[in-house]
């Protein structure tokens, strides 16, 4: 097993348990919404997805700082996997959120909700991460530039939220509080369990991705040792290699 990934099995089991618990609480314990009915249950999925992905983006920036400070490749790998996973989570969150918006507001997309709009902007920015990496051939430069990008983009996430909020506050006062500050206790329990479950899922998947990448690098290293330096050119890749 790889050097930087430990406790993968234990983590996987805990994650599976938490997800089961979260889903069970969501469907059998949390109250059925009086107005929106069953569709409202997606709230317990899309909000945790959104929160975890945003934290993941910022985490990618923190790992990026780690890379620039140490120059160690594992930090680049962490940063890459965090951002990659966050991007997947955030797109899932956006889709789920869109379904929720249709159920609760009657539209798939609403510009009047600043959280949704700024979330879209953040996703648009992070969508450029992979193309940028792919377009730099020197692996060292690729890692360095990716780290710089991850730091700037990670800092951009909160700033962007503040500014987009400012812009819509002015025209449309916010009616809905997405974070659900006034949730009844039973909702809260289901929500926080789901949040923890999604966060664990993020951590587990990220670790699996890292393990796979390290294994691939190790395989290639062994192959090179076996076949010598001419073990075939390295295909161009956007991921750390």
């Amino acid at each position: 097993m790889s050097t930087h990934v430990r406790h993968l099995r234990g983590l996987t089991v805990v994650t599976a348990l938490m997800i089961t618990a979260g889903l069970a609480l969501t469907f059998f314990y949390a109250p059925l919404d009086a107005e929106q009915g069953f569709v409202q249950k997606i709230f317990y999925i899309h909000v945790p997805l959104a929160i975890v992905s945003l934290v993941g983006f910022c985490l990618g920036g923190v790992y990026g700082i780690g890379y620039l400070r140490t120059g160690k490749r594992v930090w680049d790998m962490r940063s890459y996997c965090a951002i990659h996973m966050s991007l997947i989570f955030s797109v899932a969150g956006l889709l789920a959120g869109s379904i929720w918006a249709k159920a609760s507001w009657g539209h798939w997309w609403v510009w009047s909700d600043p959280t949704l709009v700024s979330y879209l902007i953040v996703i648009l920015l992070y969508c450029t991460y992979q193309p940028m990496r792919f377009s730099i051939e020197d692996p060292e430069r690729q890692a360095r530039y990716a780290a710089v990008f991850s730091i700037v983009a990670g800092a951009f996430v909160p700033i962007n939220f503040i500014i987009v909020n400012l812009s819509s506050e002015y025209l449309h006062p916010r009616v809905l509080n997405l974070e659900g500050g006034a949730m009844p206790g039973s909702m809260k329990l289901a929500f926080y369990t789901s949040l923890i479950a999604v966060a664990l899922l993020f951590a587990t998947l990220m670790k699996y991705e890292m393990a796979a990448k390290e294994l691939r690098i190790e395989t290639r290293r062994l192959r090179r040792r076996l076949l010598g330096d001419d073990a075939g050119p390295l295909g161009r890749t956007a991921s750390p290699s």
Binding site: I121, L124, T128, M132, I136, V164
Partner: peptide, 19 residues
Amino acid sequence: HTRARDLIGPIIGLPLMLP
């Protein structure tokens, strides 16, 4: 320093400049 600099610049720049 990227190969597709004419594409990479605008797609990264636009979201960053949005605020």
